[in-house]
Simulated scan of single mutants.
Amino acid sequence: MEFLVVSAASLAAVVVVHTTTFLIGRRIGRYNVVDTAWGVGFVAVAAVAAVVGSGDLFRRILLLVLVAVWGLRLAWHMIVKSAGKGEDPRYQDLLRGDYSAGHVIRKVFLIQGAATWFVSLPLQLSAVLGPTPALLRPVLALGVGVWVIGLLFEAVGDHQLRRFKADPANKGVIMDRGLWAWTRHPNYFGDACVWWGLWLVSIAGWVSVFTILSPVLMTYFLVYATGARLTERYMANRQGFDEYCSRTSFFVPRPPRSPIS
């Protein structure tokens, strides 16, 4: 019953975040602001779960801190990235010229809001569970380690790409330096690691295994739905992209191969 209360409160928090974001997008005339709400929504759920839940206090606070560091960094990155720019081509293609309120809510905000609630289920369940058993404490520590790796890949990858694009000499050039030489999507790979790490941290018993579909869904989004595969569709015709793909791992980092001659 307590889990249902936490889950309902988490859903209400997601609705508030995405409704507010929709109204902001309506006012400024672009809906890529939902990318900012993506991180903020998870922080809101983690905060609600930490306050409403009565499970292990240490784990509730730890998960809140980890999610807040990740989510607020991501939200700020998206604000800076989209400042002064128009609508993202992804949302233009998705909406197909129909910017009516109902269509935008169904195609953008409803889907992302539902995904936020579902992916955050490990946080919600963990908030009502007791202390992490001694046998599972190494799993918790491993989860923090995976989270750290993920955050570093995501933050460093975003920073390297931002600096690269800031140099006018790199206009039209494929970014293939730093982490981008090891994987074509260090930010998405890092994001996946963050959520697998959070899932490991959230484990407090056998019942936690039932939430494994949450990081699986997040990974699916990052690889296929709105992440790496979609990004590459927009980059497919860029000069040098095929050669970059021939020597750089798609998702999981590995040393770059020699270019195919």
Rank of each mutant, 00 (worst) to 15 (best):
F189K: 10
P215Y: 11
S246G: 04
P215G: 10
L222V: 04
Q239Y: 03
F241L: 02
C245I: 02
P215Q: 06
L213Y: 13
F189N: 04
F221L: 13
G197M: 06
G227L: 03
A204L: 08
G197K: 13
D242V: 10
Y188V: 05
Q239A: 15
D191H: 13
R229W: 14
M218W: 11
Y224I: 14
A225K: 14
Q239M: 03
G190P: 00
W196D: 13
V216T: 08
Y220P: 12
W199Q: 05
V194P: 06
E243I: 03
S246E: 01
L217I: 14
W206V: 15
N187H: 07
A236M: 01
W195G: 05
Y220K: 13
Y188Q: 07
M218Y: 12
R233M: 02
T226R: 06
Y188T: 03
L222F: 13
A225R: 13
Y224A: 13
W206H: 08
C245V: 03
A204C: 04
W206E: 10
G240E: 00
S214T: 10
R238C: 03
L200Y: 13
C193G: 04
A192S: 15
L222Q: 14
G240V: 01
D242Q: 15
F241Y: 10
L200G: 09
W199D: 06
L213W: 14
F189H: 11
L217M: 14
F210H: 04
S208P: 06
E232I: 05
W199M: 07
G197Q: 07
Y244S: 00
G197S: 07
S246I: 00
V194K: 02
V209A: 15
Y188K: 02
F241D: 00
S208G: 15
A236R: 01
F221I: 13
L217E: 11
W199A: 07
R229G: 01
N237R: 08
G227W: 10
W199S: 08
Y244Q: 06
V216P: 07
T231E: 09
V223W: 10
R233Q: 14
P215K: 12
L213F: 15
V223M: 10
I203D: 08
T211S: 13
S202N: 05
L217D: 07
Y220V: 14
C245G: 01
V216Y: 05
W206T: 13
A204I: 06
V207F: 06
M235G: 00
G205C: 12
V209Y: 12
A204G: 11
L222K: 09
A228M: 15
E243H: 09
L222E: 12
T231S: 14
A204M: 05
L230T: 11
